[in-house]
Nucleic acid binder design. Sequence first.
DNA 1: TTAATCGTCGATTGAGTTTGTCTACGATTA
DNA 2: TAATCGTAGACAAACTCAATCGACGATTAA
Lengths: 169, 169
Amino acid sequence: MKYSVMVEYALHSLVYLIDVPSNESIGIKDLSEFQGLSETYLSKVFGKLSKAGIVSSVSGVKGGYKLAKAPEEISFWDVIKAVEGVKPIFQCQNILKNNLMYVDKEKCSSCTSGNSTCTINLVMLEAEQQMYAFLSSKTISWLDKELEQVLPKEIRVGSREYFKRNDSI
Amino acid sequence: MKYSVMVEYALHSLVYLIDVPSNESIGIKDLSEFQGLSETYLSKVFGKLSKAGIVSSVSGVKGGYKLAKAPEEISFWDVIKAVEGVKPIFQCQNILKNNLMYVDKEKCSSCTSGNSTCTINLVMLEAEQQMYAFLSSKTISWLDKELEQVLPKEIRVGSREYFKRNDSI
DNA sequence: TTAATCGTCGATTGAGTTTGTCTACGATTA
DNA sequence: TAATCGTAGACAAACTCAATCGACGATTAA
């Protein structure tokens, strides 16, 4: 029961994309180098973010990624969904398939009564949604503002400086 | 991001332990046979439940398990905690350890500002707790009452009958 | 007292997933 | 035309999960 590191990579990387103007982008190489991550692996993460419409890519030399939506429209949950997929947290495997008493029903007794699904399963799903609701309420732009307050100014300025491309050379 | 089947096995099995009088118990063999589960694996699950003080064991012939607490005092979350351990859902691996700008700090810039921990991490932890809060509010006795309403009577009666040991022979 | 039953523990194995690398490819720019 | 960049897929190593096996100690029935 753990989120993959992809989620971490994605969330951290997106922070650096927030201020990027729509006519610019940041390359995977810079992003991975700055954070000390595997370049090829991070590129896979961004492939998923791109497919999900969270970032858009610019190919070719000086290409890279930028946000495809306003930061207010990207929630933590969106990112997780994009990167991890949408498999439910708990899935009753119908363990009682072989239940001695109810073989013929091919379903576990506590998992199906009429049309309703497993009570245990329902509880888990509801719990899951409590988490999702919260994660959907936190957006990237919220994160940006939060970091602005919490982090020393020079750190944020510094990272912005790092990703600024010297188009003039 | 998924709970292990152990959680499912545990939750389902505990249902059958609810009505067991304190001077009786149900053996792993019966429990696994009835549900069509691996006996040895289920015994591991109960080992964990036992260590966590959720069930207590009776060893020797005609031994088995019974609830160690009142069903009102056993929540879904207690069971999950017992079976899965208490590892956090998301753990910032300090990916920016090698961060170009802040190598000397040995911590990721967005992960530590003063004494506070990573903002991203905090969000994930809070999300996690939303789920836990819900799961802590659902107890085994609640599940019992719920199943009483939702399941056909003969199913519950039948399973109780199955686990009733004929001490008289 | 002996044999069968039952919980406990640890080692091991196999499957599946996660993390990560490598390579080839197409688009873009200088 | 060559270097840079995203894209895609094959592949490999590491790790986790599910499950099995065997040895052990406790208990009960014969």
